[in-house]
């Protein structure tokens, strides 16, 4: 009798434990999925991924800090999506353009693709750039990319199961800004040429390399865009003249490659914004990033020079 009472009590305890675990799981996954949905909405709004027939700005920190989306939209009089992330390498930027294409099969009105002297040299940028794409891992093309780039299977699987693990502070902040409609991106500060000279002397600047595989990858993307009829405007957001002059030969080689792409593909154009801004050092926060004042002037310039290149809206 006593043994059976004991067993009953243990069974009741186990049921109570199971109920607690079940309740915990329900609350956990409800909060996980609910909050993820809210944050995703913020991200998509911020990057303009919900917008149809848009001028799609794609790039890394040069575009993030260099172009004011709101001003450009106002000056062009057409919707602009700024799908740019600091630390995004060339492969990431191509993925961003393709990702937008999967969301909107008709494609963007035009892709303003941020280019620079270092775009074919992967060294020096974050090896964790892929993590910025985790919130969109539900998308087939992003998922395939993440499977290739995840640092471990645990990293990938954890994010498949727990959606909130897909975010980091950068993405959370972007989502917050998307939800609150805050698209400001200017920074203060002023470029110090002497500091750059010292760093160059010490060999602390990032060297330019032209990686054949990256060039081929970019070529393939441009061919794909051309075939789909997506106009691509390769846009050189200004970096300082001092920076551009660190390795003049390789830098010129990159520019030649970019011009070559524009000559090869009918839908590709090259828009070089360096002149007259690259020599005006008071417009830069550091050797490669425009400050708030530079952002305003370059965005106005971009709007003026971009408008005639854009196809008519649908």
């Amino acid at each position: 009798m006593r043994i059976s009472d004991n067993l009953k009590a243990q069974k009741a305890q186990l049921i109570r434990l199971a109920q607690g675990v079940l309740l915990g799981l329900i609350v956990f996954f409800a909060a996980d999925r609910g909050l993820d949905a809210v944050l995703m909405r913020g991200l998509d709004r911020y990057f303009g991924l919900e917008t149809e027939d848009t001028v799609l700005l794609v790039g890394h920190s040069h575009v993030v800090l260099g172009i004011d989306r709101v001003r450009l939209e106002r000056d062009l009089g057409t919707p602009v999506s700024k799908y740019a992330r600091a630390g995004a390498q060339l492969e990431d930027r191509i993925l961003m353009a393709r990702h937008y294409g999967t969301l909107h099969p008709d494609g963007p009105r035009a892709i303003v693709f941020g280019v620079d002297g270092h775009m074919f040299s992967p060294r020096g940028l974050s090896s964790n750039a892929h993590r910025l794409f985790y919130p969109h891992m539900g998308d087939e093309i992003v998922d395939a990319y993440l499977r290739d780039h995840a640092l471990s299977w645990q990293e990938y699987v954890t994010r498949q199961v727990v959606h909130l693990a897909r975010y980091n502070d950068v993405l959370l902040n972007v989502a917050r800004r998307g939800l609150s409609g805050d698209w400001s991106s200017g920074v203060g500060g002023r470029f110090d040429p002497e500091r750059l000279a010292r760093e160059a002397e010490l060999g602390e600047t990032r060297p330019i390399a032209i990686d054949a595989a990256q060039v081929a990858q970019f070529d393939a993307f441009l061919a794909e865009a051309d075939a789909k009829g997506w106009p691509v405007i390769l846009t050189f957001v200004p970096t300082t003249e001092a920076w551009n002059a660190l390795e003049p030969d390789t830098f010129t080689e990159v520019l030649t490659l970019l011009k070559g792409f524009a000559d090869t593909y009918e839908s590709v154009q090259f828009l070089d914004l360096r002149d007259p801004w690259s020599s005006q050092y008071d417009l830069f926060a550091d050797p490669i990033h425009l400050n708030a004042k530079g952002q305003r002037l370059v965005t106005e310039d971009l709007a003026t020079r971009l408008a005639p290149l854009l196809p008519e809206g649908q």
Partner: peptide, 12 residues
């Protein structure tokens, strides 16, 4: 529920 939310906090 509070502890489930703490786990969400850890994930996020």
């Amino acid at each position: 529920s509070g502890h489930a939310l703490l786990l969400c906090g850890i994930a996020l």
